[in-house]
Design a protein around this nucleic acid. Structure first.
Length: 490
RNA sequence: CGGGGCGUAGCGUAGCCCGGUAUCGCGCCUGCUUUGGGAGCAGGAGGUCGCCGGUUCGAAUCCGGCCGCCCCGACCA
């Protein structure tokens, strides 16, 4: 009976734990179509907060939202050679409409580069029309063979930014600006540490010059690609005839970037912070930051305590110390017939960052009793100035969650591996982020993937590299061209 | 599509070998007592046993076919 209520632990079976958390915290549920899922209010609420934070950052960096259609003529996809090769196998194709076979099949967008650059070509004549800085929030479809809730589904929600510039350097700067935005979002909102850097050729986006990424480590030591930002060069501009007249009167192809993050981030959130009691949501992304549980015995007391809880909520919500538009998000759980303990477990499963208990004793002592979700620490908080105390505590939780996640990642990172055999042992065991030299040859990368399932997750930016650069390639012993991070990935 | 497993109430299951109209737990509903870490008692609702066919007086159970799902591999935000 008690076992029924407990989750599978992370140590027992990480995948089973993940699925149980997602289903039981009611983030999502399987839909009748294999490989696709319903995002339920608890999950969508987190996505809405992610959207708002990211959208604000996109706007602040000069981007505007637009919406391009779901259906793309099949011929468009074929215009950029690497792009077709990369995406054709996973495209859903519509062949019939209105009861008739279509003259040209339509593909359901797996990503929107083709339709967007086709339209940009129509809108751009002069250098004066550049840059174009657009983003769209949309669903996309990729016919994956193996699916997992949030991490890989046939259909998912994301944002895709698409920009056009007059020069390579401007496009490059844009790709890096967005990389920075993603990093800031991951660290400050998700409390999820990430490595930033460049993808190796084999992991590069189909049709891009360079792919930058943020890469996170999950608690099972596997890597999760959490966001990508591509410098597309002139590949799509050439394929879609996206040209403009320069200041000096010549015709030139534009330079493009594209970048995206998806609902996969919710999966990353679960696997970064979750524990054996369920989900743990960082305050800034939590639809509910604080849950108040009134405690009572007799019915008379119930009325009194519920009222006190509502007053406490009002006091918290009315507080404007965080700004008039960023009020504390508070819920009172006054349900009858459920014991307080049962409520605690339920809200812990759902990951609410802070619980406040309010009973007759607290009322008497003019305090409330708090319990942190992340550390399980419990302490009374004085009723006077409670809103400010709560807000401060939430900030502390946000910071502590980031620090804890970063410490976990570093503890599971290995530098200075002596031999390829040692590397194989690590990957056959618990796994890790292994920093090592690489000769830059796709063949050595392929060999490692074949033998250990690990891949190059990122060629890290300077700040993430080891103090002393590895001089030789892990696989071949040849001189190293880059330091790279190896790991098994989602 | 290759290898492995499974379809019985909302969820998890027993029954199947050895045919006789379905067991238990959780959840749900009603009432009373409870309520500072997963409440107790009493009563109650809920099932075309994945689908189609066959054998049989009789099929969840035996036989044949089909469908679906999960796990492992090839593809991937």
């Amino acid at each position: 009976m008690a076992d029924d209520k407990k989750l599978t632990t992370r140590a027992e079976d990480f995948s089973a734990w993940y699925n149980e958390v997602v289903l039981r915290a009611e983030l999502a549920d399987y839909s009748p179509v294999k490989g696709s899922m319903v995002i339920r209010p608890n999950g969508y609420g987190i996505w809405e907060r992610m959207q708002r934070a990211l959208d604000d950052m996109f706007k602040a960096t000069g981007h505007q939202n637009a919406y391009f259609p779901l259906f793309i003529p099949e011929s468009f996809l074929k215009k950029e050679a690497q792009h077709v090769e990369g995406f054709a196998p996973e495209c859903a194709v519509v062949t019939h409409g209105g009861g008739k076979e279509l003259e040209e099949p339509l593909i359901v967008r797996p990503t929107s580069e083709t339709i967007i650059y086709h339209m940009y070509a129509k809108w751009v004549q002069s250098y004066r029309d550049l840059p174009i800085l657009m983003n769209q929030w949309a669903n996309v479809v990729r016919w994956e063979m193996r699916t997992r809730l949030f991490l890989r589904t046939l259909e998912f929600l994301w944002q895709e930014g698409h920009t056009a510039h007059a020069t390579h350097d401007e496009a490059e700067a844009e790709a890096l600006t967005i990389l920075k935005v993603y990093r800031t979002f991951a660290e400050e909102w998700m409390a999820m540490p990430v490595l930033t850097g460049l993808k190796s050729d084999s992991e590069r986006f189909a049709g891009a010059l360079r792919t930058y990424c943020i890469e996170a480590m999950m608690q099972d030591r596997k890597a999760l690609q959490a966001g990508t930002s591509h410098n597309l060069g002139q590949n799509f501009a050439k394929a879609f005839d996206l040209k403009f007249q320069t200041e000096s009167g010549e015709m030139a192809h534009a330079w493009n970037t594209s970048w995206g993050v998806s609902t996969r981030l919710i999966g990353g959130l679960v696997m970064t912070h979750g524990d054996d009691n369920g989900l743990v949501v960082p305050p800034k992304l939590a639809p509910t930051e604080v849950v108040i549980v009134p405690i009572w015995k007799a019915d008379e007391e119930r009325v009194r305590m519920t009222e006190a809880a509502m007053q406490l909520k009002a006091e918290l919500v009315d507080w404007t110390g965080r700004g008039a538009t960023d009020r504390l998000r508070v819920h009172v759980d006054a349900r009858q017939g459920i014991k307080p303990g049962a409520k605690y477990y339920e809200w812990e499963l759902r990951g609410v960052p802070l619980r406040l208990e309010l009973g007759p004793k607290d009322l008497e002592k003019q305090s409330v009793f708090s319990a942190r979700r992340d550390t399980k620490a419990k302490a009374p908080i004085a009723r006077a100035g409670v809103a400010e105390s709560v807000a401060k505590l939430l900030e502390t939780i946000q910071h502590d969650m980031f620090a804890a996640a970063k410490a976990r990642r570093e503890a599971a990172s290995v530098r200075g591996v002596k031999s390829y055999d040692e590397f194989k042992e690590i990957m056959a065991g618990e796994g890790a982020f292994v920093y090592a030299g690489w000769n830059g040859d796709p063949a050595s990368e392929a060999k490692v993937k074949e033998e250990t399932k690990a891949t190059i997750r990122v060629i890290p930016d300077a700040e993430f590299r080891s103090p002393t650069a590895p001089s030789t390639c892990l696989v071949t012993g040849q001189p190293a061209k880059h330091e790279v991070v190896w790991a098994k990935a989602y």
